[in-house]
Write a protein that binds this DNA or RNA. Sequence first.
DNA 1: TTTCATTGGTTCATTATTTGAACCCTTGGT
DNA 2: ACCAAGGGTTCAAATAATGAACCAATGAAA
Lengths: 261, 261
Amino acid sequence: MGTISKALSLLNYFSTQRPEIGLTEFTKLAGRDKATVHRHLVELVQNGYLEQDSRSRNYRLGPAILRLANVRERTFPAREAVIPIVDALSSELGELVHVSLLQGDMLSPLYYADKIIHGTRVHFDEAELLPLHATSSGLAILAFGPEELLQHVLSAPMQKFAVKTLSRPSELREEVHEFRQQGFSFSDQGFEDEVCSFAAPVFDHSQRAIGTLAVALPTSRLNLEKQQLVVAALRKGADQVSFVFGGHLPENISRDQIDAA
Amino acid sequence: MGTISKALSLLNYFSTQRPEIGLTEFTKLAGRDKATVHRHLVELVQNGYLEQDSRSRNYRLGPAILRLANVRERTFPAREAVIPIVDALSSELGELVHVSLLQGDMLSPLYYADKIIHGTRVHFDEAELLPLHATSSGLAILAFGPEELLQHVLSAPMQKFAVKTLSRPSELREEVHEFRQQGFSFSDQGFEDEVCSFAAPVFDHSQRAIGTLAVALPTSRLNLEKQQLVVAALRKGADQVSFVFGGHLPENISRDQIDAA
DNA sequence: TTTCATTGGTTCATTATTTGAACCCTTGGT
DNA sequence: ACCAAGGGTTCAAATAATGAACCAATGAAA
């Protein structure tokens, strides 16, 4: 591990739970000599990655980070960032995977991939907006997004797209409630006949649901084993996508796992 | 300059205009050996601060930055806190207003607002670092910040950005001295042609100048009345921003006394 | 108010890492 | 088939990082 990595790894000790760290605490966390840690801290401060509270002498994350995050957001389109994750997931599952972002009261597909290894494939149009009440993605957003959005959809007429499209508000409210518990949503033939899908919410830096990661497959290919695979992959993938959008990374997922993906 | 600073300074070459940089370009920008730069880049990638486009092999800012920015804003919401002040000032004056923080020997924009009520608007890139000798913000920091910083800038070459960029150390020293008396700084076409700006220092709780509040407007819109409005608004606003940073400015202390400290 | 423990920060000889000129490999253009 | 340019690697030499011991300031306890 080079000097640069040693210094940068110090920044990883910050979290919402631990926003300020003192010199001694750092040396304990990093398990390195005090002098070394101190020099690293000084250099990080000089470059704006940390700033030191002049009262407590503790260190906290500095303004340079905000500027860089800003540059990345503005210059690195979300689509590009999401491509490898969606591609990997699609390859892993051999099914259609897409990321869609909330746009008014519809979902706008950002990117999708379909590594066909089965005979039948699910139809998906990247340029078509998805309705909230009839897709697993929409239901995921309703479950984890703002309450107003849910109210709005509940009070509007619900267009029938396929044989099993939800059409009664009470039905939708029940489903959404269930998905909130589960952490992911499911829809069977709500948008297109013979197609079912699973979706998990994607969060931005302020923990707001801004979109979804979803897997769609022919209903005929669905079974318990498949469901478990999909749900597990979806959880992992949604966290990765959230991370891309600056959202929070649950404690039980390490950076290594993300790097490996 | 230590290894850490050398590596981190590579990140500063990114901007909205230059979101991706290749190895050779980096070596030219940094003026360092290719092998050195490459090792630094590799280590930054390993830590998530950069990622490499697998097609072009260019480097771009990585996702680690988003997480850190997230932590900082959630635990130390300086940007959020400053937004209403900057917005109000911009609305009041009908001009571009920004708060920037000192980061090494540059200023890093934290937030800006531009409530356009005039035909022309000033260009401002929130993701671009500001030089100290060529902007009113920089001059304000030099006037009220540490003496070493001023010495450092005086002894370094002064890049010419626009028609009236200060380029002689004696000139800069004079200006800074004058601003110290006034309590605010002014720059006419020092950074961009046809643009002038006013700035006032922002202090933290230990009375150190950590940044600035600035107003930028087309030189063509400048007149005495405007200047008086801007300066009055700037004094008031800068104190508000200082307050946000815990550096509230006691009424009985004049700016001259601060200067002495 | 003296003492002691804790934390932040510094020094300097030793040590290990960083450095860079020269090199190789791949790609894309002609 | 050739060349130019960019990305990446090697290894002896140079330089910068390291850490045990030290100092200073703060604050709680005796």
